[in-house]
Design a protein around this nucleic acid. Structure first.
Length: 391
DNA sequence: CGGTTTTGACCTGCGC
DNA sequence: GCGCAGGTCAAAACCG
């Protein structure tokens, strides 16, 4: 028993060391990206004054964006002790009158962009942008490092599977919520939708998820400014992040909630969301010369943290051909719901940076390129769903 | 006993 | 204005 513990401890140390080295690589990459981002931010501040609040907000800490803001007026009025609903309602109404932008909190309407509307829509988008993760899992819920408390369950129209509502319980008043529902067409697919940003420190395992929604919101906001922009960003994302994956990043800036959907179900069929006509469909191409394999360690670094015990032996080499070694690694470890949660988080964390990078890059690389890439089949990365762990 | 889950009721926004 | 659907509340039940 004792020796076993010791062995486990050693193993943990080893894995931690590996993780740290990966983390270092991530930090290095982040710093390389940062100057470009800052330049971009400055440019934005000058050129697009209505978006300034975004830059300021996100520049501080993604996890803090919308802590207050994301508590909608109705949310705020619904204190734990809701003793007097009528007064609450009054307060609700007052707050709405005081801040018109609050009105769009529940359902941000991206109406025609007058400067003011743009401002409001952007703010609403920030608050309610969602990150949706589709992953195959037999487990009832993906483990993402946070503590969640179920506060409701509802049958959604058109889906025989109930939708469960969870709230983050790691800190009082944390506005982060998530919805978990199985896909109607394929019940092995678990759809987890995150909304809001944490207002508290997170355990390392949950750090990846912490920046998810704010990063997504940033991307969405940018994408919602113009559809071309959205395509561009998403296109860049797909070509950049998972060049060897057949997964899909689906971006919807449409009402009611702008959503980034990360499809980690490895379906090669780009028409798998027939009902989402407003989504940009973005199958990942198999290979791309512009795909920095250097980003992969960042993704996997985050993801691996949740899978230390399982993947401690995995070595990621930037020198190696990403389409071979990394895709093999992807196939091997992506078959875990915990991994997919972390991977999705990591991906969406990077989206923001990728987007900025892309904005800096030449804009030629947009729709035409996207069209070229759309039909590329990159399915060298099959996931064996039978390997899913049950938490 | 405290925290979590269940579940029916309620609230709110939207479309007609 | 009405009905519908999504989202949330909160009391009761459950669990460790």
């Amino acid at each position: 028993m004792k020796t076993e513990n010791q062995r486990l401890k050693e193993r943990l140390d080893h894995v931690t060391a590996e993780y740290n080295s990966l983390q270092m690589q991530v930090m290095t990459l982040m710093q390389q990206q940062k100057p470009e981002e800052e330049d971009e931010d400055d440019k934005k501040k000058q050129e697009m004054a209505p978006r300034r609040f975004m830059d300021l907000g996100l520049a501080t800490n993604g996890a803090e964006i919308g802590e207050e803001a994301s508590l909608s007026s109705s949310e705020r009025s619904k204190s734990p002790e809701r003793k007097n609903r009528s007064s609450d309602d009054q307060e609700k109404n007052n707050s709405r009158e005081d801040s018109p932008s609050e009105q769009g909190t529940k359902v941000p309407r991206l109406s025609p962009p007058s400067p003011r509307n743009l401002d409001q829509a952007a703010e609403a988008t920030m608050r309610k942008a969602r990150v949706s993760v589709r992953a195959r899992s037999e487990a009832p819920m993906m483990t993402d490092g946070c503590q969640w408390r179920k506060y409701g369950q509802k049958m959604a129209k058109g889906n025989p599977c109930p939708r469960a509502y969870y709230r983050c319980t790691m800190a009082a008043g944390c506005p982060v919520r998530k919805q978990v529902q199985r896909c109607a067409e394929d019940r092995t697919i678990l759809v987890t939708t995150y909304e809001g940003n944490h207002n508290h420190p997170l355990p390392p395992a949950a750090m990846a998820m912490a920046q998810t929604t704010s990063s997504a919101a940033r991307m969405l906001l940018s994408g919602s400014m113009s559809s071309t922009d959205g395509l561009m960003n998403a296109n860049f994302l797909t070509r950049t992040l998972l060049p060897c994956s057949s997964s899909m990043a689906t971006i919807s800036a449409s009402a009611p909630f702008p959503t980034v959907t990360l499809d980690l179900t490895h379906s090669p069929n780009p028409l798998q969301f027939p009902n989402h006509q407003n989504h940009f469909q973005l199958p990942f191409p198999p290979h791309s010369s512009s795909s920095p394999a250097s980003l992969l360690p960042q993704i996997f670094g985050q993801a691996l943290y949740n899978n230390q015990s399982k993947f401690s032996g995995l070595q990621l080499s930037q020198d190696a051909d990403p389409s071979s070694s990394v895709s093999a690694a992807t196939a091997a470890i992506a078959a875990d719901p915990n991994f997919t949660a972390a991977l999705a988080a990591a991906i969406t964390s990077i989206i923001g940076g990728a987007q900025h990078q892309n904005n800096n890059a030449n804009t030629n690389n947009s729709v035409a390129n996207n069209a070229n890439n759309n039909n590329t089949n990159g399915s060298n990365n099959n996931i064996n769903t039978s390997n899913f762990s049950e938490n």
